Computed example of a mutant assay.
Amino acid sequence: MTSQGPARVASLPELDAAVAGCRACPRLVRWREEVALTKRAAYRDWDYWGRPVPGFGPADAAMAIVGLAPAAHGGNRTGRMFTGDRSGDVLYAALHEVGLASQATSVAAGDGMRLYGVRITAPVHCAPPDNRPTPAERDTCRAWLSRELQLLRPTLRSVVVLGGFGWQALLPVLAASSWRMPRPLPVFGHGAMVRLPATDSGPALSLFGCYHVSQQNTFTGRLTPAMLRQVLAAAATEAGLLP
């Protein structure tokens, strides 16, 4: 990782800066930088971000959304999670309709988008080939997600996980943090909800499952905007962001 590892980071702004400098996974470093150089024809005038993409949202978020990894020509281009790609179009539109985002679209890091009480992150911060990180890459990146949740602990009340990969990546992080994991482990499913008791003096955490906002799911109707809004609204209510 960087010379400043996750455990030494004292704040979310510092964490975001440290994440952006990570070069721990050689395959992901090569891929993200190659994509940033070759670009996509539609974005040939863009100066691609081409680095690990940090989380996005306020440092006192009550709700988190955990995806999979940045898209090669989305977050890897813009430098912001779920910004500049079709999946992000669906997610931010739903967040806006529920009342958790200032606008319905997010096209660039400086476009004025603000999230209200929500932070978006991922278990893998670099764009992977074919959108498929390896288990080793997921595990190498785990310390960043763990530290991010530790820093959010004072305010975090709910988490929405987009897809089975994120769910499997997040469970060990939660189990090693401030919450008690039930046995057997909760199984991912759209609409799944598990309340995790705290192992410290803080509040419990409500964990929600949601199908990923991938084109494969949204184009086929497996995940509709209404289904997404329903999960986001339920998690926001648990977090105290909605009545």
Score class of each variant (00 low, 15 high):
Ala108Tyr: 01
Ala235Ile: 13
Arg222Ser: 07
Ala109His: 01
Glu137Ala: 01
Met1Lys: 01
Met113Thr: 01
Gly67Pro: 08
Ala176Ile: 00
Leu241Pro: 10
Arg114Thr: 04
Gly209Cys: 07
Ile65Asn: 12
Pro225Phe: 12
Pro154Trp: 07
Gln150Phe: 02
Arg77Val: 08
Thr38Leu: 13
Ala71Asn: 08
Gly117Asn: 02
Met113Asp: 02
Pro52Met: 13
Pro13Cys: 08
Ser177Gly: 09
Pro6Ala: 15
Ala127Pro: 00
Ala24Pro: 04
Pro54Arg: 06
Ala234Trp: 15
Arg27Gly: 13
Leu145Tyr: 00
His190Val: 04
Val53Asn: 12
Leu68Pro: 03
Pro135Tyr: 03
Asp16Trp: 14
Met113Ser: 01
His73Leu: 10
Arg23Ile: 09
Gly21His: 10
Ala234Ile: 12
Val160Thr: 11
Met193Thr: 07
Arg44Val: 09
Ala69Glu: 09
Ala10Val: 05
Gly163Asp: 14
Thr83Lys: 10
Arg153Gly: 07
Gln150Glu: 10
Ser11His: 07
Ser87Met: 10
Gly112Ala: 03
Pro197Lys: 10
Ser102Ile: 04
Leu100Met: 04
Tyr92Ser: 08
Ala169Asp: 02
Ala236Glu: 05
Pro243Glu: 15
Arg119Leu: 02
Gly99Tyr: 05
Glu148Pro: 02
Cys25Thr: 13
Arg153Leu: 07
Ala61Trp: 04
Leu185Ile: 04
Asn76Ala: 15
Arg147Ser: 04
Gly166Gln: 09
Arg153Lys: 06
Leu170Ala: 02
Ala109Pro: 00
Val159His: 03
Val231Pro: 04
Val159Thr: 12
Ala109Lys: 01
Arg183Pro: 01
Leu162Asn: 09
Val90Ala: 15
Leu162Cys: 12
Cys210Gly: 15
Pro133Met: 00
Arg195Asp: 05
Leu152Cys: 06
Thr121Gln: 00
Ala62Thr: 09
